[in-house]
Design a protein around this nucleic acid. Sequence first.
DNA 1: CAGTATCCTTGAGGATACTG
DNA 2: CAGTATCCTCAAGGATACTG
Lengths: 129, 129
Amino acid sequence: MSMSSSWEGDAFDPECPTRVVLDRVGDKWTVLIIGVLDEGPKRFSEIRVAIGGITPKVLTSTLRSLVTDGLVTREVFGEVPPRVEYALTELGRSLQGPVAALRRWAELNVAAISASRDRQADAGTLRSS
Amino acid sequence: MSMSSSWEGDAFDPECPTRVVLDRVGDKWTVLIIGVLDEGPKRFSEIRVAIGGITPKVLTSTLRSLVTDGLVTREVFGEVPPRVEYALTELGRSLQGPVAALRRWAELNVAAISASRDRQADAGTLRSS
DNA sequence: CAGTATCCTTGAGGATACTG
DNA sequence: CAGTATCCTCAAGGATACTG
């Protein structure tokens, strides 16, 4: 079907699958994995150490989802020891911009947010005096 | 401390609070709420209907988090019936760009992703023949 | 190396009903 | 109108150990 790529979703429609896409993209690890793969194809372990704090089980399942969604490819090389490489598809690369912006924003504003949280915590504490 | 706003996080450091920020931003409703509030201050119910599919309890808690993080303000007007308005702070507005890009990406690519998922499902089915 | 296999906890989020 | 109050579930994700 040549028309399939022209359809657009509406994130504000509860029935629209765009919500699901947003959920996947916004999950705990996707942003990081996409970021790592932007450097080029990477092996399972490379991704693992680059990210840090992710267990193999979770990395596997997240990677699987990304492959299912067509954002990442998985290529197995028939070697010993085994070698598997993950790489961004074109669709995955197109997500790179938005996701990098988000990551960047988080890095730039983490201090302001932490400060705000601390302030709120203080306010809560002070209410008792 | 005048230096506090110049500190930058590193999303790839497991110890960095940037991870937490990313989690909050990437949660199921934040992207939508920020989007609605971009149009200007909104009342609780306005946000509710604009988004659709969110229960009052969840909206309340998400809004609270956004206020705590300094992304949104909550203003109560001493009226009857009660009136409460939520609005983006400057920090919240600065998140608008990245978040809109992400929402836009999701809307544009939801079709491609759905197609990829269906294809994978087919492949799984066909394996048994 | 690249995963699997288990077990388990936690809390996000939903359903529903009620209130100042 | 703008929330609270309860109850509930379900699955994401973590800890740990094992394998082709």
